[in-house]
Design a protein around this nucleic acid. Structure first.
Length: 966
RNA sequence: GCGGAGAUGGCGGAACUGGUAUACGCGUCUGACUUAGAAUCAGGAUUUUGAGAGUUCGAAUCUCUCUCUCCGUACCA
């Protein structure tokens, strides 16, 4: 074989590993480059071709940076705590650590075969005690911190205690749970337990009873971002609300900074918007409405300017004041409504948006400005969890209020000047307010400010900003996660001292909750814990996002036993320069990492407050499924499996007997020749029922199904039990459909087969060649041959017809230099704008040109080789060493582009008439505008298009184009 | 509903600041080589950039209107 990729690739992979070619230097003088790919969860299914896409791009760029003289950190590791290993453990009793280890080894093997430039000495695994020791340590820092809103940063809890000691909490401006005021004297008099209780309100990670998303099937709580469409993201199980004592993270303290600092990172607008929406900042006012019975109802509104348009109030059904406010007459109706609402799942409630429902409490509030009586209703369109769980309803300015008022016959006041609200509410802010006393004739934006001013002045409320973002629940009732560094004494939580960390996972007899519903860790014997303190240890474990929130820091200093990352190393490596991964982590991992980074920055452990400077989100690779048609008759008769063109006709909706004639016509006219009669007879006798079946793509080549081979597979042996109707030429063609890669569609492509068949270099180039990195695109192996041929052709540039290595030492000729420098320019530009697909095309063009030029010039090919080496590193190393180099090509320097080689004496001007290109004319590049014009007009073909008339106008763009207006 | 991205041959896609539309690859067709296939080589074909208008000497590219697709998100007051 001329280009023996299997041998070459194995050889160089071994060389890189033995020579630690990709080991990053700490604190070198070179500029640093930190390129990171999102680390994978090692699932049992292994890698499919979609996984390496981002890794390959990341690898190409990292190798490129190395060639441009950077000290490159390009690590890889595993997010190895997680549910699937635990579910497997529950089913089989096998320890999740063993499952994880097995999967992880498989991943490593697959990754190694693709030839990545990972510095494996820096590998991290979140489930490794030497790693999660530091996850626990960071948890402790969060526990020992509070958020000082005046300083706008986190500070240690010790200094808060000093303040309490000296002046109580009256002057403390903290982001915290509601806490009653106390003086310094009070504080001194409090018991230890009481003090701890109070401090808990301030800590950045805290224990509190909170409504959580409980997933009974998974036996654990889930964070909001782990739920999609009202069911768990993993497994699709139903989720219900439950009040539980849980660890939470006070991410809300960082809401404002998390929004603002998005402006400082180079991410896609889509991800930034997702984060902004998730955080959901809204600016407005909180206003207190007194009720007739003397209660205060606090509402949040973004439109205080519409306060004179309030015509009723709505409380969430769960609102704490509902029972107190409801008058006797309405007690039953309210109770009924509350019950209905509570029975609805989150999902029903969302699905039921258009159904307007609510109930009147019988109570009235008093308008703070007019004193007018306002009906108080409850309705489930008001959410207990957002704002204060109560709204002032302004039908003219809010569509939901408008619909509600219309439905229940409540008055709709119009306080907008010259706006028609007879059909719908008007929610825009470009209105002028009227009928509103002191707000009259003001544009809404000014009115908002004045309204807040008045509200504050008269003591009805204050200006306020609300966020949709909730504090993040941090406990999971699972086994396979980080244990908390926490123990309990008399019900009060305490931290395990640093010198005893990590608290490792104890052995348990089963990975299930206990009989009384405690998490699996409650099963552990006291002696099974490596650290056991107080009455008991914490039974919860941390969520999946704990370990992944800071892993990019550990790569900088993976073996450090004294600190999670040393200050110098964090200063040197700093932010991740390029982060590549999927966009599905927009509101999970990517938000939590930013939160932890800001916190660690606040505490002075690192010097930057955003983790990922630039991010690219690779698109999903879709599978290409192969589908055949099955026509079924009654049970006694063999089904018929039909090829594509027949399936297509049947699929045109002509599936039922009332279109029988149509089907018959199609069949006999267009389709399967003599088989048509057979098919028609069957349908005639038995009626028709058809469906589509997915066939494993491994039995399909170029859409042709290999029936013989497929029918031997137990999964598809049915093919042998029916009749086959092929195309006229006898082949059996499958219909192709692009859909998600999934086991159930039999369309999963693993990289292993392809590496085996075509080599890693081909796979790498092909994955890039498919299209722009960010775009979702179908995977189609047909094209891989083309890329493979390119590499073979590339190989042949260096060899003669008998595959003997042969290059020339002569001076390179002009044509070769032009091709080379054109290519250097393109490749560099493509890399700089992360256009990996066009770079591969440009390599193909260069290879084609050199082939045509019969160029085997050593100097030229050496430079070309360096360009190619980041895309196809194995073949590049092999040819590089054949050229006589003794060091790895990764130590070479990226070639320098020289524009002189591209200068041409003549340019072929395209000549257009009225914008339509008609012919070309070759003229000297240095010819002036006027001369070009004269030459073109003098050209014989011009007369044809001028048709005897003088040109109206002639546009000459030197070196570009000539356009003549007639 | 809201937000984001997008629509170019039979297919994946190129065309960077408006300047030769469809590079590169796949598929397809013809021919050469071959016992045959694979491979290789030579050559051909398809279209007018989702629709409509505008700006311009010139628009895939800029502006407006509309249609459709994908992704995210949703009673957030």
């Amino acid at each position: 074989m001329e280009y023996n990729f299997n041998e070459i690739e194995a050889k160089w992979q071994q060389y890189w590993a033995e020579n630690k070619t990709f080991s990053a230097e700490d604190g070198s003088d070179k500029p640093k480059y930190y390129g990171l790919s999102m680390f994978p969860y090692p699932s049992g299914a292994g890698l499919h071709v979609g996984h390496p896409l981002g890794y390959i791009a990341s690898d190409i760029y990292a190798r490129y940076k190395k060639l441009t003289g950077h000290n490159v950190l390009h690590p890889m590791g595993y997010d190895s705590f997680g549910l699937p290993a635990e579910q497997y453990a529950i089913q089989t009793g096998q320890h999740p650590a063993i499952t994880t280890e097995t999967n992880l080894n498989r991943y490593r093997k697959q990754l190694d075969k693709i030839g990545f430039s990972f510095d494996w000495d820096r590998e991290v695994r979140t489930s490794d005690p030497s790693y999660y020791k530091w996850t626990q340590w960071i948890f402790k820092q969060l526990y020992n911190a509070w958020y000082n809103k005046d300083a706008n940063k986190a500070e240690t809890i010790d200094n808060l205690e000093v303040i309490f000691e000296n002046e109580g909490n009256a002057n403390v401006n903290a982001d915290c749970a509601e806490t009653a005021d106390f003086t310094a004297a009070d504080w001194k008099g409090y018991s230890e337990a009481k003090r701890q209780q109070i401090l808990m309100n301030y800590r950045l990670t805290f224990l509190a009873d909170s409504w959580v998303n409980w997933c009974p099937a998974l036996g654990t709580v889930l964070a909001n971002d782990e739920i999609k469409d009202g069911v768990s993201e993993r497994g699709g199980h139903p989720v219900e609300q439950k009040l539980m004592r849980q660890w939470s993270m006070r991410i809300t303290a960082y809401a404002e900074r998390l929004i603002n600092d998005l402006d400082t990172v180079d991410w896609t607008d889509s991800i930034k918007d997702q984060q902004r929406n998730w955080i959901g900042k809204s600016v407005g006012a909180s206003v207190v409405f007194k009720t007739e019975s003397g209660h205060d109802i606090e509402v949040f509104t973004t439109r205080p300017d519409t306060i004179y348009g309030v015509s009723f109030m709505v409380l969430a059904p769960e609102h704490e004041l509902v029972s107190e406010l409801t008058t006797d007459k309405y007690k039953d109706a309210i109770a009924t409504y509350q019950k209905q609402a509570s029975l609805k799942t989150e999902r029903d409630r969302q699905a039921d948006v258009k159904n307007i429902s609510g109930a009147f409490t019988g109570a009235y509030a008093l308008h703070p400005f007019t004193g007018e009586k306002i009906e108080i209703w409850i309705a489930d369109y008001v959410l207990a969890g957002y704002g204060t769980g109560a709204v002032m309803a302004v039908p003219c300015g809010d569509q939901r209020d408008y619909d509600f008022a219309g439905h229940f016959g409540i008055d709709i006041k119009n306080i907008f000047k010259d706006v028609d609200i007879s059909e719908t509410a008007y929610a825009e802010k470009d209105v002028v307010i009227t009928d509103s006393d002191f707000l009259n004739d003001l544009p809404a934006k000014k009115a908002i400010k004045l309204a807040i001013y008045e509200i504050e002045k008269r003591g009805f409320g204050k200006g306020q900003t609300n966020y949709r973002l909730r504090d993040a629940v941090f406990s999971r009732q699972r086994y396979w996660g980080e244990p908390f560094p926490v123990y309990y004494k008399n019900g009060t939580p305490y931290l395990v001292p640093d010198d005893q960390l990590p608290v490792t996972l104890p052995e348990v007899d089963k990975y299930l909750p206990t009989e009384d519903g405690e998490p699996p860790l409650a099963r552990a014997e006291d002696s099974a814990w490596n650290v056991f303190m107080g009455d008991r240890m914490e039974y919860n474990t941390m969520p999946g996002w704990a370990g992944s929130s800071w892993y990019f820091l550990r790569y900088m200093d993976p073996k450090n036993e004294d600190v999670f990352v040393s200050k110098e190393k964090a200063d040197y490596w700093n932010q991740v320069d390029l982060y590549i991964g999927g966009s599905e982590h927009a509101t999970g991992h990517l938000l939590y990492s930013r939160f932890w980074t800001k916190f660690l920055n606040d505490m002075g452990f690192i010097n930057f407050n955003e983790p990922f400077k630039k991010m690219i989100n690779q698109g999903m690779i879709l599978g290409r499924s192969s589908i055949i048609g099955r026509i079924q008759f009654s049970e006694k008769i063999r089904p018929i499996y039909v090829s594509h063109s027949i399936l297509r006709e049947i699929g045109k909706g002509a599936a039922y007997m009332n279109q029988k004639e149509e089907i018959f016509n199609h069949i006999s006219n267009n389709i399967c020749g003599e088989n048509a009669q057979k098919l028609i007879e069957r349908i005639e006798n038995d009626g028709i029922f058809w469906n589509k079946l997915h066939i494993d793509i491994k039995y399909v080549d170029n859409d042709r199904l290999e029936i013989g081979r497929a029918s031997k597979d137990p999964l598809f042996k049915y093919l042998g039990e029916g009749d086959i109707l092929p195309e006229l030429d006898g082949s059996f063609v499958c219909q192709a459909e692009v859909e998600k890669m999934s086991k159930s569609y039999y369309n999963v492509q693993t990289p292993d087969d392809l590496v085996e068949k075509f080599g890693a270099d081909t796979l790498r180039c092909y994955e890039m060649f498919l299209g722009p990195l960010e775009q979702a695109k179908p995977w189609d192996t047909k094209g891989i041959n083309g890329v493979h041929n390119f590499l073979r052709k590339f190989w042949r540039l260096f060899h003669d017809a008998e595959n003997n290595f042969e290059v020339s030492d002569a001076e390179p000729d002009k044509a070769a230099l032009k091709t080379l420098h054109k290519t250097i320019k393109k490749i560099q530009e493509d890399l700089e704008r992360f256009s990996f697909n066009t770079a591969v095309s440009n390599f193909m063009i260069a290879t084609n040109e050199f082939t045509e030029q019969k160029c085997n010039n050593k100097a030229v090919l050496s430079e070309l080789l360096i360009l190619v080496s980041s895309y196809a590193p194995h073949i590049a190393e092999e040819l590089w060493s054949k050229l006589g180099n003794t060091e790895s090509i990764t130590k070479a320097s990226f070639p320098t582009f020289n524009p002189d080689f591209l200068v041409e004496a003549n340019f072929e001007y395209p000549v257009s008439f009225n914008g339509k290109m008609r012919f070309k004319i070759s003229l000297p590049t240095n010819m002036g505008k006027d001369d070009v014009e004269a030459s073109v007009l003098a050209y014989e073909q011009s007369a044809k298009y001028l048709d005897g008339k003088p040109p109206k106008k002639v546009i000459v763009v030197p070196g570009r184009i000539v356009n003549i207006v007639v």
